[in-house]
Nucleic acid binder design. Sequence first.
DNA 1: TAAGCATATTCGGATATTTACATATAGTTC
DNA 2: GAACTATATGTAAATATCCGAATATGCTTA
Lengths: 113, 113
Amino acid sequence: MLMNSKHPLLQEVTELHAGICNGLADPTRILMLYALVDSPRNVNDLTKTLNLPQPTTSRHLKILRQQGLVIGERDGLYIYYRLADERIIEALDLLRTILNDRLTYRASLVQSQ
Amino acid sequence: MLMNSKHPLLQEVTELHAGICNGLADPTRILMLYALVDSPRNVNDLTKTLNLPQPTTSRHLKILRQQGLVIGERDGLYIYYRLADERIIEALDLLRTILNDRLTYRASLVQSQ
DNA sequence: TAAGCATATTCGGATATTTACATATAGTTC
DNA sequence: GAACTATATGTAAATATCCGAATATGCTTA
C-alpha cells in the first residue's frame, strides 16, 4: 500500500525513482544503454557507434553513472562502461513493448481503412 | 539487433521511447500512477490524495496523457483517469526494485561497520 | 618529463520544465 | 440561463536540460 505523499522517506525514494527514469528519458542515453547490452564499451567506441561528439558521449555517460545505470571501470587508457543492472534493459524493453503495441495498433487502423 | 542510430525509423521510435520515460521522470507523476493502480480516480480525488494544487494535478495528468500513460474518461461532471497499460507499473516496479536493492546494499554496509 | 591518446569538464546560449496564481472552459442542476 | 462544481489553460518566474566548442585532466609510452 502506498503511503501518504507527505511521508518523508517515500518522498525521497520516489525522487530517486524519478531520477532513474530521468536517466532513461533521452534518446541518446537509451541508444547508449542498448549498445551496452552485449558487452562493455569504452567512450570512443560508443562515440563512434552513436555518431556523437566525444564530449556529448561523456556527458550522457556521466548522467547514466549518477543515476546508477552504468558502471565505468578503467583499464589502462580506456574506461569501459557496462550496464549496472540487466533489469534496466528489462524495464526499457517493457516500455518499448507498450510503444510497439500502440504503433502496431495505429498501423492496423490505417490498414483497415 | 539494434540498427545504426542514423536510421530514421529507429530514431523516431527511440524518441517516443524516451518520451514515455520522460513521462515517468517526475516524483509527482510516479505517485499519481501508483495512485491509479487499484482503481480510476478523478482529478479532485488525486489532488487531495497527493496534496497538490488542482492545476498542478491537471498539468501532470496532461503530460501522462500525452505520453499515453493514462486515459481519462469523462463521466458527467468528473473525468476519471486510469492507467493506459498495466505494464507501466511493471516497468516502474522493476526500476524501483533496482533502487531498493541499491539502498538495501548501502544500508547493509552501514550495519556492518 | 614530453608527447599523445582517451576521457571529462567548463562555458555559453537556446530551449524546456515546473510551479503558483489567476482565469477560462465544460458539464450539471436549479 | 444563472449558479455551481470539476477540470483545463494562460502567464510569468525559477530552474533545469541540452548542445557545441574549447579546454582540461588522466594514463601511458618513449
